[in-house]
């Protein structure tokens, strides 16, 4: 569990503002790294050539991917959310992938800040707030009709309203917890398997052959799976946000 521990860095543990400790931690450092790497990635695609190079093509395929996703989910009105969804998707994607880098080999400790529900929770709350703001700004109190699907029989309306309201209110939790759980589970799984490899190796050669080697082979596969999960979870977060935005934009 050491890999999830937050440690203040560069002697900033005493940074307090209004009673809140705002130390620049390893988590904050990796947020900064994710942002900078993302900035470098996008900046590399800003040559604005008519015939794009490989890097520009890569960046344009990501923006095109987000654009297509929003258009498919929301329609023409989805265009204005591209900056937000792009930032969200790429920030989470880069955080997930950078957290998986085997930097321990050269003595550094990568930190996956998306495995902290404080972080994923804040991102989920931001997305949820945008949904609420857009929904109420666009439809006013009519936004509540979202909780009464078309064709609901009149006597059922109060019950359905409550059920739909609860499912709506659960959204930020499911959004934030899904990412946190997926990232943490993957990292814990890798850690458990690697502890098998090392523990069995320390015990005896026979146990190492029996448990250590299969665990190691399994780890290789799980590492590949984790890279996939890193992408999928970022995608799911962005996709669900755009689905929720569709509710706010178009109601049902």
């Amino acid at each position: 569990m050491h890999q999830f521990t937050i440690q203040p860095m560069f002697g900033t543990d005493a940074w307090n503002v209004g009673g809140y400790n705002l130390a620049f931690t390893n988590s904050a450092l990796w947020m900064a790294i994710s942002m900078v790497v993302l900035w470098v990635f996008v900046a590399g695609g800003m040559k604005r050539q008519l015939v794009p190079g490989r890097w520009q093509m890569a960046v344009e395929s990501f923006t095109g991917f987000i654009d297509d996703m929003l258009e498919a989910n929301i329609g023409k009105g989805g265009r204005k959310y591209v900056p937000y969804i792009f930032s969200l998707f790429m920030f989470i994607l880069f955080a997930n992938i950078l957290g998986l880098l085997p930097l321990g080999v050269i003595g550094l400790h990568p930190f996956t800040f998306t495995s902290h529900f404080t972080v994923t929770g804040v991102l989920a709350i931001i997305s949820f707030s945008i949904v609420l703001i857009v929904g109420f700004a666009k439809h006013g109190l009519h936004f509540f009709s979202l909780f009464v699907p078309h064709g609901t029989p009149v006597p059922m309306i109060p019950v359905i309203f409550v059920v739909e309201l609860i499912s709506f209110m659960v959204r930020p939790f499911s959004l934030g917890l899904r990412l946190f759980v997926a990232m943490m589970a993957g990292h814990v799984l890798l850690e458990v398997l690697s502890s098998f490899v090392i523990g069995s190796g320390n015990y005896s050669a026979g146990i190492f052959a029996l448990a250590g080697i299969p665990s190691f082979i399994l780890m290789v596969g799980i590492c590949a799976l984790e890279i996939l999960v890193a992408g999928i979870q970022a995608y799911v977060f962005a996709l669900l946000t755009s689905v929720y935005l569709n509710d706010a934009e178009n109601l049902h």
Binding site: I6, S27, A28, M31, M35, P83, F86, T118
Partner: peptide, 28 residues
Amino acid sequence: TYASQVFWLLIFFGLTYFVIGRGMVPKV
């Protein structure tokens, strides 16, 4: 740590949104 987590996330995600999302993505 929650205060520091929230604070720095807002800083860096905010930078990501305003600099990259709003500044660079529209140009791309």
